[in-house]
Design a protein around this nucleic acid. Structure first.
Lengths: 204, 204
DNA sequence: TTGACAGCAGAACGAACGTTCTTTAGTATG
DNA sequence: CATACTAAAGAACGTTCGTTCTGCTGTCAA
């Protein structure tokens, strides 16, 4: 399955800049404005040139049109560059130039949207696993897990995030913080889901 | 007796249904169509009634308008109701991931797409800050940062992730691991960007 | 020095759009 | 039967939109 043709990302040197402006605009407003409004966004004065730019971005695969002719972003529009760590000097612009991979974070972390849920982390019981208060846990809902998985279990009607362990044939919940005790459920252990990802946002 | 308008979230019983249709449409097309097109989507025949619906959804906080009058979705537009299955009381606020593909995590972490890039973390020099090898750093490219920010600096032609500090009027790079030394650059310090987010994927 | 072309501006125009106003059908109240 | 109100339709209209075409300016090769 290698027969997709490579859409030349940009046929015009300035298109990358226009695309960047459009991406930033979309991040703010979640819509693609009219040609007239795009004149301001792009800093140019003619609608016809805006159309030419959008046509090129469309051809390059960053935009497409609805049946009624509205411009809408494609998957490619949202992808972000992923730098190889071995990138050497020359930096700021060359990141885009090194045609590395492009990813969408949601797709990296979420395989099954309908089973996946995001839960904010409370407390510091998993701090030694690098899971801090305020982080967001990406959890795939299922009630089977393997020893060693980090799971969201339901204990005393509350969610708790712990490593699943086994001790004498019974499942236990192991925190990653020596200040917390291992949880040995009396009865059966109800597992809500398995941790598949973690997201942290740093305030600016 | 004078009765005032009660600012109920939805003043019309069918608005919930219209909202659902609009959400589905948006998930497909990532845009809010014209009133005429919405007539088809909603299954009604008059633009004025579509406008009335959108005005109500706007008042209820699901939509708003750009300065140039376009309708755009708000945060509330994307919020999903609580989890379906047999979850009892005590469910923390959690959102299920997207059907369709609206990119929640990306939107959470990325303010300025054109300046944001993803860099894999290598080494354990920031482990006490909960940043592990293999994590992906979400970095906003800029060369100014504040003391206390975690920055990506360019040292010896390589990226390095450290906390920015100051010592005797000069900037230094502080690791979050006692096994690593503080970096005191000889000349000036070249900052590639600032850490704005962190993403970790657990293998399954 | 000319010609060709690329990058952009500007005008023209019909179609589509959003807004407002008026009308109609149905239902509930009393 | 009269009234009142809601849900929706429809018409009217000025504005804006997208499209196309033409014009201008600078650059570069012949």
């Amino acid at each position: 399955m290698t027969d997709f043709d490579t859409p030349t990302p940009e046929s015009n040197p300035k298109d990358a800049e226009y695309l960047a402006k459009l991406q930033d605009y979309y991040a703010d407003w979640k819509s693609i404005p009219s040609y007239a409004a795009l004149c301001e966004v792009f800093g140019i004065a003619s609608k016809s040139w805006v159309k030419a730019i959008l046509d090129r971005l469309g051809k390059a695969g960053f935009l497409e049109r609805t049946p009624d002719g509205m411009w809408i972003p494609t998957h490619q529009f949202f992808a972000r560059p992923f730098a190889e760590s071995s990138v050497q000097a020359g930096m700021p612009q060359s990141i885009t130039a090194t045609q590395g991979d492009y990813y969408v974070i949601d797709e990296m972390l979420i395989d099954t949207p309908s089973l996946t849920t995001m839960i904010p982390v409370k407390g510091d019981s998993m701090i030694d696993a690098g899971i801090h208060e305020g982080d967001v846990a990406i959890v795939e809902k299922r009630n089977l897990a393997s020893v060693g998985d980090i799971v969201v279990a339901i204990v005393d009607n509350d969610f708790t995030l712990k490593t699943l362990g086994k001790e004498g044939g019974k499942f236990i919940l192991i925190p990653a913080n020596p200040a917390y005790p291992v949880i040995r459920p009396k009865g059966s252990l109800e597992i809500f889901g398995v941790l598949v990802g973690l997201v942290r946002k740093y305030k600016k």
